[in-house]
Design a protein around this nucleic acid. Structure first.
Lengths: 290, 290
DNA sequence: AGGCAAGAGGAATTTTTATTCTATTTTGCG
DNA sequence: CGCAAAATAGAATAAAAATTCCTCTTGCCT
């Protein structure tokens, strides 16, 4: 599809001082990112599309890409020329190159990875990442299956009625409380993060009132500080939603609703993926319920 | 490139008793293998080539494929028709599909899922949980596909050499930094969480030295405080590992290694599942490398 | 405000590509 | 060994694609 060469395009090229035209996707992407701010509206639109759907650029025809990106075919050619190519086809070839290098699909890779892991115990970062991802996927599926709709409804009801939602979690689970704090604030709910900063958790917990609610998260081996906070809340008649790992947890007895989440684990490291998913769902459900 | 339809080709089709034409690469490959012994010489040649270089079939033009396979262009068309297609282009589309799906654009996948769920219109907490879980699963798969082993290796190398690992992330991404702090401490690495507590991030960042490393996480719209910290580190020659959402992020230019993570999103709420998975993998890989 | 330059849109044109057709070769079989 | 049927090659043709080019729009500067 490309023209051999012609005056117009070589003109364009020389105007860019024959700058080295990118020859691989990586440098092309870099170039696109770098020049993004200086591009015109339509060209930016294409830049975004190209970074987001490289496969489509590689495979489809100009007309199809243009319509998917919501631009005119000629705009794509202007785009290509802006980056020093003779025409769109030249640019397209860069994207195709990436696909030509035989890359196994995700499922193929998982299968291969599994073989490898059984055989010689690959500890490379990529293997670890794949393993974690797999474990997290399994944990998420498990979460969906185990979590009862009734519990979710009750938890959302408690949170909806609460004037302020207090949050407590420590050590490994602390990121969950931090996320909840952010998310609740974002949907306009008053939240209080009992982060024990300066050792002032004893003071922070005094703020809890029966018209509020507490979300407590703790996993084995159950940080005493968190368990104490839950006990304190229970005594004060503050409704408590608990997230923990198993029924024998000290939270079970003290909470109005408890969720049992089994997070993914690899090499003794527990993930937070499933817990995070549950936490988010609660917040979004709460936000939607209002 | 395909003709609408014509007598000849439909004749060929009907001769094959309108047998179901394969619609995906897997069944097509099966069909090719099965019928291989009954094929004519030139057609076998093509069959071998197709099984060996599926990517080339997907990307190149008939002329190029023909010359690489050492056959005439028309032979390729005969081949396609022998398998019930109207022309070579139809067959080619099957191969293209695989490439498009092998790294499915994440947002398309999410969009498809949204369509699916739109039917039910269930906004209850359980539906939201399921939705989040599925979105997270898709994001995790996407993460595995997009993350390059080389980047992981380089990031781990940087972290391994670091005396102290500084961590910076704010607002939505803060939980990630918090988790990293916990995890790094657990594997016995010295970590410093630049949490901007008491507004003292400017002081906290002074601790960074070239023999250390910085892990920075920020997503649109790129908390200025984090971007500044990264710029500061870059000036001080502190190696930086970045985690962000897309190449146009301000982190791209300043980091030694950057990971692009597209987290799951439902109702404007972005998850941290995929980012969390990546963070964990880095820590575990670092722990294992020692 | 008004003019100018860069950008965008869309039809027309050219190039490339897929497909068909027929002459020629090969293959299988009596 | 020769005849018919199938297979093949390659030129010819039709289709589809990329690209150009001209007109209209938009934004910017004086």
């Amino acid at each position: 599809m490309p023209k051999r060469k012609n005056l117009t395009s070589s003109g364009v090229r020389s105007r860019r001082a024959a700058a080295q035209v990118p020859t691989d996707v990586v440098s092309l992407n870099r170039e696109i990112s770098a020049r993004y701010p200086t591009l015109s509206k339509r060209l930016r639109q294409i830049a975004e599309f190209a970074l987001k759907h490289p496969n489509e650029i590689a495979i489809e025809s100009i007309a199809v890409i243009a319509s998917h990106a919501g631009v005119q075919p000629s705009a794509l050619i202007r785009f290509a020329k802006a980056f020093g190519f003779d025409g769109f086809s030249d640019l397209q070839r860069i994207f195709q190159q990436r696909l030509r290098e035989s890359r196994p699909s995700y499922s193929d890779r998982i299968a291969a990875m599994r073989e490898e892991l059984h055989g010689q115990r690959d500890h490379g970062p990529q293997a670890i990442l794949t393993r974690f991802a797999e474990a997290n996927i399994a944990a998420l599926q498990h979460l969906c299956e185990e979590t009862k709709a009734g519990d979710l409804d009750r938890a959302v009801a408690i949170l909806r009625k609460a004037e302020t939602i207090h949050l407590v979690a420590q050590r490994r689970s602390f990121p969950l409380a931090a996320y909840l704090y952010y998310a609740l604030s974002k949907i306009g709910r008053r939240a209080n993060l009992i982060d024990a900063i300066g050792g002032m958790d004893t003071e922070q917990r005094q703020l809890m009132e029966p018209r509020d609610a507490l979300v407590a998260i703790t996993y084995a081996d159950y940080t005493p500080r968190v368990v104490e906070t839950v006990a304190f809340a229970a005594r004060r008649k503050v409704p408590v939603v608990g997230i923990t790992d198993q029924p024998l947890s000290p939270l079970t007895a003290q909470c109005d609703v408890v969720f049992y989440v089994e997070d993914a684990a690899v090499h003794d490291f527990r993930s937070l993926g499933a817990s995070m998913c549950l936490a988010q769902s609660l917040v979004v459900a709460l936000g939607a319920a209002e």
